[in-house]
Structures are given as structure tokens and as C-alpha cells.
Design a protein around this nucleic acid. Structure first.
Lengths: 346, 346
DNA sequence: ACGTTGCATTGCAACGTTGCAAACTAGTCG
DNA sequence: CGACTAGTTTGCAACGTTGCAATGCAACGT
């Protein structure tokens, strides 16, 4: 049943090697031979055996994408872009979820993936990048923050600048009682810390006193965490007229709580998030956000990986992807609709 | 550099075959030998070469998941569940996106996937299931509707019943001017047609006249399509006090338009969708929806695939997954919040 | 004592492909 | 005309693993 080079060769009356040459588009095959072989390939429906090819070539043309979870919009959108970009290179993508569990992150970077894929793009959550660097058994590109320089390539947006941009935007609206949702002091993950740093620095520069009771920590970055955090803020002693959420999902949860409590957004409380997930464009009110250039992140990650696969000894790179502030209704109110007449397509 | 059975065998002083036996947990290995070999495996950091194993065994322990797009919440959530379920079986998942393009759907079912994976789970969009059945070159499970019986296993919810449930719910609220968004007459895809069929049948049974001008066709099922469709309805001549959207994304788009036009949901227009995507639980108002049991779909798909991999000649199966109506604020209003006190976690 | 049984271990071949280098052909040049 | 070049095709071996069948060995029953 299985059609291999052998069968095609027999049919076309040439050697196995010649069929291989034709199948791979190698040079120096006589036009007439090529035609005859191609015909046999088509007739028999030959498909190269990926396993044999990988074994022989030592390359799988497959990469692994490791994310905490795929049902989170940010990672889903990122995964979509990575798959698309990989496809342009002829690479297949193999997806793993870690659920943010440290053991799984370690395994994905060091484990079986190290042998069955050419490289790994990993978005770590619980494990410190330095540790992952030590474990890696092949080309690995990390997505997200890394403060200490390590052995691995790494791509992130400027999270301090992102925190500053969001905070400046809220201040520019005249808000003076800013809260932040999304600190994660318990994690070896610097993303939240850097966003908070940008937030604090901007408040300080504006002459506003730091208000630690208005910085709310969360255990994960999903809507329920944002909703609970917002409830805690509203139940707390401090007045709040603006909230910087470290992810859009947190922001959507926060807006949910605000709606339930009858607070108007942005009139009573302005909200800004980070990630620019699709939901944020269509929810009511639409969500202002710091938008990382996800397509660029995907592209850079693959470039990096390609380079490292080609030369495992290449020096480390730390690349910074672009971001920009998207001002929408959750901060500007109805004015946003005039500014950006029609919501962009998905 | 590459550590294979050969190196481990040399180190442990046994044959290559014995190392293989230990690595695979085969029976009849003396405890002492096992210990020594395991030690060598650990010390050298041996990882089995997947390509060689696949070549020899004829199985890749990998499946392919083919969806129109991964950034669509429904497919992202489904993919997440499929990856999780596959992992329990020790299978890797390889993800492809078709963008709803017919050529890509055909290729994914018949193409390279047929040789490098043990099976394919495909959610077709543009190509008729019957055609895909004819093309398939290996175990394939189709997700979504299929009216004509074919050669392939297939899993779906009862879309007629789903359409009925949504419509009955709207009628039970006293609405009498129902619209439907999401018809797709141009596609070889019966999902929309069956949901519409359930919708119409229910209206008819309630003695309401069919109102074809209140059935809006869309080209894709995303938020912008829903927003545009809703605008068309509001600009049309017919009064509308309830909308059944064939997906939650369409519903979110529709609610966006309603908000922009100052219509209250559900007071002026009640909205119900299908899919139960996470966004629907946290948007304002939260979205009533017909919730397919996505975890069950994922599980059934893998069961089906496992069975077919084991026995390619097994008879076709058409499995029906459960669904249930989730009544939330977009139809019940504030009452929904009392009924379901706290929104479930993600 | 000898055949039998069952466990533990092994060597050999093969999975389908491609790298390598050699072999062959035809055309060109000195 | 023979040597050389360029173009085309080929056989062989190997990638790392596992199926198969055979081997060695000790314990057992008769």
C-alpha cells in the first residue's frame, strides 16, 4: 500500500536516486526523465515519508510552539501568526500547552521536543528564563521578558515603555487616582514587574504619590482575576478613577465588575489594557490598549530560530518588538468612535 | 554530539537492543541490567530519535488538527481541548490553518499530512465533506455538519435542535420579531443551513410568519460580519426585537452595533449566539448562547481517530455531541445575574 | 541424565530516504 | 583522435530505531 521511491522508480524505469532528485527538484535531471518520473509520481500518488527524510537529513522542518494555554486570546492570536509565518518557511508547527506549570515548561524546552523538532519557541511563565537557558537542548527562542542576559535568544516588547504609555495616557485624561491590576510578585517572570515599573515611574514623574494599596496582584491573567481584582479595588478605601490592567483579559474582567457595580467606563473609571486582543475591539465600550506588534513578534521569533538552527553558536540576541497605544472608548468614551470611524476587521 | 542507543549501549556494556528494551519499558530485562542501562541513559541524556522511531514503527504518534483559523475563539478553545486530550494519549498535535480556503482544506486532508501524521482532525469550511472523504489518504475525523453520509467519521452537535433551542428561548421571552444572522447559502457547509432550519421550524410551529428579510447572510462568521449584518437589519424595514446569531462572534458584533445605535440589550433587542466562547461570559451584557460541549467534541474526535487508526476498515460513525442553552444577560437582562451569581472561571 | 520450559540477551535486517562518489554519456576542444 | 568537461544517472551506505528469530543460560520435571 505504501508508495515509496522504490515503487515510483520501478514504474518510471529509473533508479530510486533519480526519483529522489526529481521529487526534490534537484538540478541536472534531463527534461524527458523529469517528465516521466513526475508522471509516475502523480499516478502512484507518491508522498515522501517525512520520518525517513527527517532521519536521513537530520532536520524535521518542524518547530514547537510552547505557550501557557491556547484558549487565551493573546496566545491564540500569536499562535495563529506563528503558524502562518512558519508555513511560509515550509515549517510545520507543533503546539504544546504548559498551563503555566513549571515542570511542563522545563520538559518542553529540554525534553522530547529537543529531538523531534528543529527548534522551540517558548513563552515561559513560571520558570526563570535563566533556568530554561541552562536546560535547553537545542535552538530555543524565548518570548517575553528576560532581565538577566542568558544563553538564549529572546524577544519582547519594551514593557517599561508600555507601562509608561498606558499610564501617561490615563494621566493625560486628567485622571489622578490610578490603580494597576496584574502584579505577579510570586513569579519568576519579569513582564508584570516591568510594566509596573513603568507605571510607577510615570506616576512619580507626574508628582503623584505612589499608592501601593492601588496595585493589585493576581495569580493568573484571565478575566476572572481582573474581575476579582477590580472588586477588591472598589471595596477598598482608595478612590479610583482609572485602571491600568497588565493584560486585556484582566481589563475585560475589570470592566465586567465595573458594569455590575454600575460604574460607567470611562466616565467614572477609565480602563486601559495590554495585548490588543480582538475582543477588545468589539466589546462595549471598546478597550484602549497597548498593542504589541504580534505579527512582528512572530516573524522575529522565526527569523531568530532560523538563524540559530543554521548556526547554533551564533551570539545571543535580544530583540525588541514594537508596540503602540490604541486609544478607544474605555478611555476616550464616545469620542473614540468619531476618531476611529469604523472598527477594523478581524 | 548526538546520543543514540549505540552510545548508551557502549557505556552500559550491553547490546543496542537491550537499551532499546529498557528505554521502551519492555518486559524481561533483569533488574540489575535495567538499573545499569538506565544510569547510562540518564548520564548521557539520551533521548529517543523520533524520526527513526516513526520510520521503524510506522507510527508518528502525531495527529494533525486542521481548522479555518486559530485566532477565532471557538477554534482556539477547541484546539486547546484537543491538544490536552491528545496529550493524555501521548500524541503530539500539529496545527494547520486553512483560512477557509478550499485548496488548503483539500491539501491538508490528502497532502503531506497523510504521511507524517497518524490521523487528521479537520473542521472543514469551504469543501463539501463528501469531497474530502474521497480525497482522504488516511484516518480522518470531520468536525461539523455532514448531511450526506460519506466514508469518514464525523462529529457534530444537533444543529437543528440548537437552532430550535435558541429560537424557543427568544420566543419564551415574549419576542415576536425574530431575526437570524449567519446564513451562508454560498458554502458547501451545512451547519448554518441546519441552524436556520431549526429556527424556521420553531417560528412556524409558533404560528409566526416566515420573514425572509430578517434572515441575514454573512460571508464569514466573525464580529465584523455580525456588526454589519445587524446594521443592515436595523436599517431595514422590519421591526426586530430579538436576534439569533449562528455564532457568538457574530452576536458580539451585533451587540456592538446595537450599542452604537443606542439600542438596549436585551430590553430593545435580545441576542443569543452559539459556541459559548469565553468572551461571551464576560462581555456586557453577558451573552446567552447555545453551548456545545467542546470538551466532549475533542474527546470524541480523538476516540474516533484512535479507533480508526487501529482499524482503518471500521465502519463510519456519525457522533452527536451534547449542547445546552446558557441563558445570560443578553436575553434575560439583570435577572441573569441573580440566577447565576458568579461568572464561572475561565 | 536429558529434554523441556521460560527468561534474558543478542545479531541481523529493514523501515524510506539522501549524501557521497563513482560511472556513464555526449559534446567540446586541443 | 584522444583528453577533457559538463551534464546526467546510478549504487552503496548510512541515519537510529525496532521486529524477528535465534542464542545462551538456568531451573524444572520425568
Amino acid at each position: 500500500m505504501a508508495v515509496g521511491l522504490r515503487e515510483v522508480a520501478a514504474r518510471a524505469g529509473v533508479s530510486v536516486r533519480t526519483v529522489s532528485n526529481v521529487a526534490n527538484g534537484f538540478a541536472h535531471v534531463a527534461p524527458e526523465t523529469r517528465r516521466r518520473v513526475q508522471e509516475a509520481i502523480d499516478e502512484l500518488g507518491y508522498r515522501p515519508n517525512t520520518a525517513a527524510r527527517s532521519l536521513r537529513r537530520g532536520r524535521t522542518e518542524t518547530i514547537s510552539l510552547v505557550v501557557p494555554e491556547l484558549d487565551s486570546p493573546y496566545f491564540a492570536e500569536l499562535a495563529s501568526l506563528v503558524v502562518r509565518a512558519a508555513e511560509e518557511r515550509g515549517w510545520a508547527v507543533h503546539i504544546d500547552q504548559t498551563d503555566g506549570r513549571a515542570d511542563r515548561e522545563r520538559r518542553m524546552v529540554s525534553g522530547p521536543a529537543g529531538r523531534s523538532v528543529d527548534g522551540v519557541i517558548c513563552s515561559p511563565w513560571a520558570v526563570a528564563p535563566e533556568e530554561l537557558a541552562a536546560l535547553s537542548a537545542g535552538p530555543v527562542v524565548l518570548l517575553g521578558e528576560r532581565t538577566a542576559p542568558g544563553r538564549l535568544d529572546h524577544i519582547a516588547i519594551d514593557n517599561v515603555a508600555a507601562g509608561e504609555a498606558a499610564t501617561r495616557h490615563l494621566l493625560s485624561l486628567g485622571r489622578r487616582h490610578l490603580a494597576a491590576i496584574g502584579a505577579q510578585p510570586h513569579l519568576h517572570n519579569d513582564t508584570a514587574r516591568l510594566r509596573l515599573q513603568g507605571h510607577r515611574a510615570t506616576l512619580l514623574a507626574a508628582g503623584l504619590p505612589p499608592a501601593e494599596d492601588r496595585v493589585v496582584a493576581v495569580s493568573t491573567l484571565h478575566r476572572p482575576d481582573g474581575a476579582a481584582a477590580m472588586a477588591r479595588l472598589l471595596d477598598g478605601p482608595s478612590r479610583v478613577d482609572a485602571v491600568f490592567c497588565f493584560t486585556d483579559e484582566l481589563a475585560l474582567g475589570a470592566m465586567r465588575t465595573l458594569a455590575e457595580r454600575g460604574r460607567r467606563v470611562p466616565d467614572d473609571v477609565a480602563v486601559v489594557g495590554v495585548d490588543d486582543i480582538l475582543d477588545g475591539r468589539y466589546c462595549v465600550p471598546s478597550l484602549s490598549t497597548v498593542a504589541p506588534d504580534k505579527a512582528q513578534i512572530a516573524r522575529l521569533a522565526l527569523d531568530c530560530l532560523a538563524r540559530r538552527i543554521q548556526d547554533p553558536q551564533a551570539p545571543d540576541r535580544d530583540l525588541v518588538a514594537d508596540h503602540r497605544l490604541e486609544e478607544r472608548e474605555s478611555t476616550l468614551g464616545a469620542a473614540a468612535r468619531r476618531r476611529q470611524s469604523s472598527p477594523p476587521g478581524s
